[in-house]
């Protein structure tokens, strides 16, 4: 049913640290790898080895150059996937009920056997989180690795989304953002975690931790004092003598 459930207490989601992400795209690869073999239709590629390759991905890493006021330009790598919005517009527009938000943990999913591939949910999403698979003709999106996080066949350390599990820098965190005492909620409170495009009114669950302010050097030439050599002793006497001549 495409009516949104009442807001759940449990809000599973990701917290992504833009200060730490190095833009290696390992999360993109891990996501594609896991979602090629488990939940739903595999993420297909078209013309993969040809001149114009294209494919379905649930997670993509943009790179932005930001120039803070009075600061120097810096590069910010920006992984983007479904934000599992509380007020998900992609769910309510769906004509078939294929797109739904889980009442128990807030994960937004697509029932692929009911999806007609009209693409309206992708139009309704401000974040570009949904892509219509060109081979299967059904809508694909981040499942928050629902087939990993509750999977008791996996070792406990692996019961986290593939992107989080693989991130070599620890820039991605998974947890319950509905619980104010969870590690992710504390991280968000501490670092001022932000929503993307809040003016769209989607109330995203995922949060982004802004890059920390860079410290600045007080001196423009920190080695300058070392160059101002004061001669002492015999050399000092000679220095003063030569000055007088």
């Amino acid at each position: 049913m495409t009516s949104l459930p009442p807001p759940s207490d449990k809000k599973l989601g990701l917290v992504i640290d833009l200060d730490i992400c190095v833009g290696c795209h390992a999360c993109v690869t891990a996501c594609k790898g896991w979602n090629d073999q488990g939940y739903g239709a595999p993420l297909s590629d078209q013309d993969a080895w040809g001149a114009n390759p294209s494919g379905t991905f649930l997670n993509r890493v943009h790179s932005y150059e930001i120039t803070p006021e009075g600061g120097v330009p810096q590069l910010v790598h920006f992984p983007k996937s479904c934000l599992h919005c509380e007020d998900a517009p992609c769910v309510t527009v769906c004509p078939t009920g294929a797109s739904y938000k889980r009442a128990e943990d807030g994960i937004v999913l697509v029932n692929e056997s009911a999806c007609i591939g009209c693409g309206l949910c992708a139009w309704a999403c401000p974040y570009g989180a949904r892509e219509l698979d060109q081979a299967a003709g059904v809508m694909k999106k981040c499942t928050l690795c629902v087939d990993r996080i509750y999977n008791e066949n996996l070792p406990e350390v692996d019961r986290t989304p593939a992107c989080v599990r693989t991130c070599p820098t620890g820039a991605r965190h998974f947890g319950d953002l509905g619980d104010p005492d969870s590690a992710v909620s504390k991280l968000v409170a501490e670092r001022g975690g932000m929503e993307l495009m809040p003016e769209q009114g989607t109330k995203p669950v995922n949060r982004y931790l802004p890059p920390r302010a860079k410290d600045r050097l007080e001196e423009t030439a920190p080695l300058a004092p070392l160059l101002d050599i004061q001669a002492t002793g015999f050399a000092g006497w000679l220095d003063r003598l030569l000055d007088r001549i």
Binding site: F57, V61, S63, T67, G71
Partner: peptide, 21 residues
């Protein structure tokens, strides 16, 4: 869209070299 206000922000590199859906 990115939350990266307080200064200027511009797209430096897209996530993929080709086109996508």
């Amino acid at each position: 869209a990115t939350g990266l206000g307080g200064g200027s922000v511009r797209s430096f590199a897209p996530p993929h070299t080709g086109s996508n859906y």
